[in-house]
């Protein structure tokens, strides 16, 4: 008890502000006129400022989708770049309204950290990148290697588990910032760099000589990446979840940002119900938003497929295939509950 009091006293100043923010996030967001999202400080394809300083990426577009649903305006999203170490306190303390920061959904984050996860906007898995000159063909040949890794991630834990269960030795070199870890790998401090596979492709582009590096075939973990919100605000949690489901449903129903206006009047009943053009529909208002919430998301940000293709897909420098992230109808895992 004594210890609790001591620790509690120290953190109190910071947490004193938290209680106000955790009650009704939607009201706070509306009052502020902007959705504040925690994003990573620079992972191409996920959240990365482009050469004009505009944030781009699949996580960024998720946040813009929330802004479009709440305000009908995707520009009303504010991005806070967070290191992997800072992201959870930032959400706990109410500094950000939602964490759209390629964060893996795990049970401990869902429970003891006091967060809620539901949707997965990118199914990922951890992999390894090595220098081609080492002539390594499989991760099982990595015994004795120095491995650069970013601190405070599930990556760090999966790495320990993988090497232990395969009886391999390694020397971890741990950095707080991803940029420091990749620079150390690039300059030869480590033989291997490990993170989620999507991240490896992105990082490879930033290397001095991208072609001298290769991603190993092994995927050693499940990394369902999705947004997290604070526990205890179900309304906000519903909104954040259904933004993703609306995007996935839109793709499934063939609604794109180009044809959404046309579909709104000419589509079938399920399309009309989703886009809020059905007579007497209360779906949007029950969610605490307006009835054109889903229309705004698709019109202003796009459906899931459009977002994927524009941020990480085969036509981007990342060249990532849909794979696990294809719709369930096409052999992937993206599946959304029906909007009715």
């Amino acid at each position: 008890m004594k210890k609790t009091i001591l620790s509690a006293a120290i953190g109190a100043a910071a947490l004193g502000l938290a209680s106000a923010a955790s009650a009704a996030t939607l009201d706070d967001v509306k009052a502020k006129g902007v959705v504040t999202c925690g994003v990573s400080a620079g992972i191409p394809g996920f959240s990365n400022p482009d050469d004009k300083g505009e944030w781009t990426g699949i996580d960024v577009d998720y946040c813009r989708g929330i802004a479009a649903a709440v305000f009908g305006d995707p520009t009303k999203a504010k991005f806070v770049a967070l290191s992997s170490k800072d992201r959870f306190p930032a959400l706990q303390s109410g500094e950000v309204d939602v964490l759209t920061r390629n964060t893996t959904w795990t049970i401990s984050r869902d429970t003891s950290l006091g967060f809620n996860f539901r949707t997965v906007n990118y199914y990922d898995g951890q992999g390894f990148i090595v220098k081609k000159s080492l002539n390594v063909k499989s991760a099982l040949e990595l015994s004795g290697a120095a491995v650069c890794v970013q601190t405070g991630t599930t990556t760090e834990l999966n790495l320990a588990d993988y090497f232990k269960s395969n009886n391999l030795q390694y020397n971890p070199v741990v950095f707080e910032k991803e940029a420091d870890a990749t620079t150390a790998y690039d300059s030869g401090r480590c033989d291997v760099y490990t993170t989620d596979q999507s991240g490896l492709y992105a990082i490879r582009l930033k290397m001095k000589n991208p072609d001298e590096n290769m991603v190993l075939p092994e995927v050693i973990s499940k990394e369902p990446l999705g947004p997290a919100v604070r526990q205890g605000d179900d309304k906000w949690f519903d909104i954040v979840s259904w933004v993703h489901y609306a995007m996935v449903n839109a793709e499934e129903l063939g609604i794109t940002s180009k044809n959404v206006d046309e579909m709104k009047t000419s589509g079938g009943p399920d399309v009309k119900r989703m886009l809020g053009s059905e007579e007497g529909s209360k779906i949007g208002t029950d969610l605490g938003l307006t009835n054109d919430w889903a229309y705004n998301i698709v019109k202003l940000v796009g459906n899931y497929g459009e977002v994927f293709d524009r941020t990480v897909g085969p036509n981007t420098p990342l060249k990532i295939e849909r794979g696990l992230n294809a719709l369930w109808t096409k052999g992937g895992l993206q599946y959304a509950p029906p909007i009715r």
């Binding site: 210890k3 001591l6 509690a8 959870f88 706990q92 401990s108 950290l113 601190t151 405070g152 741990v174």
Partner: peptide
């Protein structure tokens, strides 16, 4: 810092 991230016990670890 790593522990803080893996456990989320910010107040305790800062103490």
């Amino acid at each position: 810092g790593t522990m803080l991230n893996q456990t989320g016990q910010a107040v305790e670890i800062v103490a």
